[in-house]
């Protein structure tokens, strides 16, 4: 199962499910809910943390947290 940590730069995914008891409620409130989209904007040097667009909120989280969020990766569609 793919997680947010598996996204490559510029790739998007739709949040499927997550281990909800370990994920901080703060992240849910920012819109980390099943059905919402996540886009990986940038990965920091040394691969961590990662910078994502979580349904409109631009935030950086550590990789360990990203691994807890499962999603379906949407193959990158070419921009118009």
């Amino acid at each position: 199962m793919a997680t947010v940590a598996d996204l490559t730069q510029g790739q998007k995914g739709i949040i499927k499910d997550f281990a909800e008891h370990v994920l901080p409620i703060k992240l849910l409130e920012l819109g980390c809910l099943p059905g919402n989209s996540i886009e990986l904007i940038q990965v920091a040097p040394l691969n961590d943390p990662i910078y994502i667009n979580l349904s409109g909120s631009h935030i950086a989280i550590r990789r360990s947290l990203a691994e807890l969020i499962e999603l379906d990766i949407i193959e990158e569609t070419q921009a118009l």
Partner: peptide, 9 residues
């Protein structure tokens, strides 16, 4: 407290 930074415009 978790590490989370908002990247504002």
């Amino acid at each position: 407290s978790l590490f989370m930074v908002e990247m504002p415009t």
